[in-house]
């Protein structure tokens, strides 16, 4: 039971990361490596603010800080013409120093501080601690998903989808592609950073190395979701990223508990899952072609 509840908590928190990665990777069609840095940025900002008894403001600031980080990546890509992947790596690398600057140490503890979880535990005093945590995680995740689903139905949302699909056509429709890209990278990284912010308050510490492999975790959630739901509309995409994130956490928790692999193998396993899942279409194609070659007349 604790295992399932724990996985649900973490799964819902990382679902925000999943949504962010879904937006850049699938909707905008740009693999954005900023996420490794912006998740930790969220942890740092939210951690420091919680220590100063401003946990809710901390989450808001974490989102805004993530937006700024995303904009930097966007600017590098569009206005300075740097390769999208390299732009993400540059921002991520720069953020490492920024994050240390914010935290003042490589690890800060929030134990005993008024985190959002603590605030709601006090407010809903009668309920079990784990249930309260679940409610908080669920509400945040629900609100963010709903906002993004609605957002992608607006005119700007349509323009973002079109930019990821055919930039040329968007330019011809008199839409500023650079603005669209910067804006999208900003909100996606804001979402990733918010995920980090919530995580810091949940686990009661912020660590400088929390962000390593973040992009891969986000991709894994997106891909697991797609295996279940298929690739359809953006609404389904966002929901499937959330569900994918929860399932990913359950799989990891089960595997760790039954000692299938030691915890230090986690990142390798995640990388393998993503690598295999992304190569499935190509492998399928080559199997089909082989069949044709053998059975062809």
């Amino acid at each position: 039971m604790t295992l399932i509840l724990g996985s649900l908590h973490i799964g819902l928190i990382y679902a925000l990361l999943g949504i962010g990665v879904y937006i850049t990777f699938r909707v905008l069609d740009i693999p954005d490596l900023t996420a490794d840095g912006s998740l930790t940025l969220g942890l740092a900002v939210s951690g420091i603010m919680t220590i100063n008894n401003q946990s809710i403001l901390g989450l808001v600031l974490a989102f805004i800080a993530g937006c700024i980080a995303g904009s930097v990546t966007g600017l590098l890509q569009t206005k300075f013409g740097i390769h999208p992947i390299l732009s993400g790596i540059l921002t991520m690398s720069g953020l490492y120093s920024i994050n240390l600057l914010i935290m003042g140490a490589s690890n800060i503890s929030l134990i005993g501080k008024e985190s959002v979880f603590k605030i709601f535990e006090d407010m809903l005093g009668g309920l079990d601690k784990d249930i309260v945590r679940l409610i908080v995680c669920f509400v945040v995740c629900f609100v963010v998903s709903a906002l993004f689903i609605l957002f992608f139905k607006t005119r700007l949302g349509l323009m973002i989808r079109a930019t990821g699909n055919n930039e040329h056509m968007v330019k011809a429709s008199s839409i500023n592609v650079d603005f669209i890209k910067i804006f999208t990278l900003a909100i996606a990284n804001g979402c990733v950073s918010l995920s980090g912010g919530l995580l810091a308050q949940y686990q009661s510490f912020s660590d400088i190395s929390s962000g390593v492999g973040t992009v891969v975790i986000g991709l894994a959630s997106v891909i697991i979701g797609e295996v279940l739901f298929g690739r359809r509309t953006v609404t389904i995409g966002i929901i499937s990223a959330v569900v994918g994130s929860i399932i990913y956490r359950l799989i990891i928790a089960l595997a760790l508990q039954s000692s299938i692999f030691p915890s230090y193998m986690l990142k390798l396993v995640s990388a393998v899952i993503v690598g295999v899942a992304l190569s499935i279409p190509t492998i399928k194609k080559s199997i089909e072609n082989r069949k044709l070659r053998k059975g062809g007349i």
Binding site: L158, M159, R161, A162, M169, V170, S173, I175
Partner: peptide, 21 residues
């Protein structure tokens, strides 16, 4: 013909993007 339209979006969505201006 590939340049003028977004293939993964519906006819309606494509027209809406152009109409948005």
């Amino acid at each position: 013909p590939m340049l003028g339209t977004a293939p993964d979006m519906t006819v309606e969505e494509n027209l809406a993007v152009a109409y948005s201006q």
